[in-house]
Design a protein around this nucleic acid. Sequence first.
DNA 1: AAGTGGTCTAGACCACTCT
DNA 2: GAGTGGTCTAGACCACTTT
Lengths: 267, 267
Amino acid sequence: MNSNPASTANPIVPGGPGEGAPAAAAPATSPTFSPLYQQIKGLITQSLESGEWKPGEIIPSEVELAARFKVSQGTVRKAIDELAADNLLVRRQGKGTFVATHNEDRAQFRFLRLLADDGAEHPHVSRLLECRRLRASADIARQLDLKPADPVVLIKRLLQFDGEITVLDEIWLPGMVFRGLTLERLSEYKGPLYAMFETEFGTRMIRATEKIRAVAADPTVADLLQVPAGFPLLSVERVSYTYGDRPVEVRRGWYVTTGYYYQNDLS
Amino acid sequence: MNSNPASTANPIVPGGPGEGAPAAAAPATSPTFSPLYQQIKGLITQSLESGEWKPGEIIPSEVELAARFKVSQGTVRKAIDELAADNLLVRRQGKGTFVATHNEDRAQFRFLRLLADDGAEHPHVSRLLECRRLRASADIARQLDLKPADPVVLIKRLLQFDGEITVLDEIWLPGMVFRGLTLERLSEYKGPLYAMFETEFGTRMIRATEKIRAVAADPTVADLLQVPAGFPLLSVERVSYTYGDRPVEVRRGWYVTTGYYYQNDLS
DNA sequence: AAGTGGTCTAGACCACTCT
DNA sequence: GAGTGGTCTAGACCACTTT
């Protein structure tokens, strides 16, 4: 167990207690000022990253964490609030605070926002095409923060919505992290890909950025998606990041958007 | 001036003061329980909607609002925090809290997330094609929450990025709200459309939802965008909402995504 | 009844901006 | 120096869940 007291891991220097004597604490001069709750946030993130608390598990209560870090409950509360806003933690009143997971809930929609034209959310099934290990191209290496020719895993698959072939995905993963990932293991696993990555490889996808374009289907892609060559497709280039903003997935998707659309909210 | 004390506008029933006698307040039984800060949030939103504080202006300080609503500073703080998270207010340390606006900042990008292939954000210029008043189709009426055949304004325009024609927009607005909106007035106004809407018509766009598809350019659209018919375009159908989640704009955009892409962040 | 997160208060002090 | 938002604390009580 990691008994990580705040004082050892970080120069925690609060502004001063809310009452009584301000002690002899340094005045926290501005240059490298970081609020206490940010430091706590960092410590909690470390525990998440190190696997001290795994996805789906409950984390210690606010009072426990306050005691452990030697700060007030309000301070750990603010730290947890931000981590919950970032989708790293999930609060449940009366029960506790839990590590977010791609397994349960339907956090699926967060990373695949395809809806039917009537606005309904349809379930989809995956059809694996291949899973190969190869050396990263310069482009993929750059995006995954690897050296060129480093080992990578390439997965190709189709997604069917209501039986209709709708999405073709090419997924690149760093080979170092995803050792032992084979087509067979992929097919055995039931459930979302990101759920498998987090339970089988300890890599949790936190956030992603996407570049979206309209493109004409090239012959190979058109064939797989069963549309005519030149058919307009939504091209989605995604880079996914885990703790510490480290990129761990490059995904290129082609979506057939007849009958389905990509839902986005600007707020 | 609207002296809106909390007690008149809303049944504010706090759980009880943090110390001393809990007074004779009702125990706030669960069925219709709403936290105090949510009620304060509602009151502040009312003042925003009524125009008591206009976009770009400063709102009263936290202590002033606390006195006005007869609550603690911490409570109005939490209310303001959420309104700032919703992009209705902007906090600036040392200066005050301001009403968000589409005028300054470059909150532009929030509603037009087109980047050049190199990731750079290029400025764009608008070229107005037309501005007509007509009767709403059933479809548009439904989306704008109007009755069929109610008056609407239709604006068509092109956007050029670096001189390249990139976007064609068709914009529908409720005629009642946008009285006196003419092509001439549109051309005179320099700056973002949403900035004009908020300063000239008192209608501020708060959030929007978009349905994104890849489509083949039909001849009319292709001609305007100077691409071949059938060219793959990004189709973006947007509905924008103002205070109270009232829809006030339907926008259909066609984006040429060669050299540019639509940037989206999943978090 | 006990434990968890959620709300509310009051007060002190810090960081930042302007006068 | 005065005023603003930002941080931190301590304590009380509420709402929800489980024992």
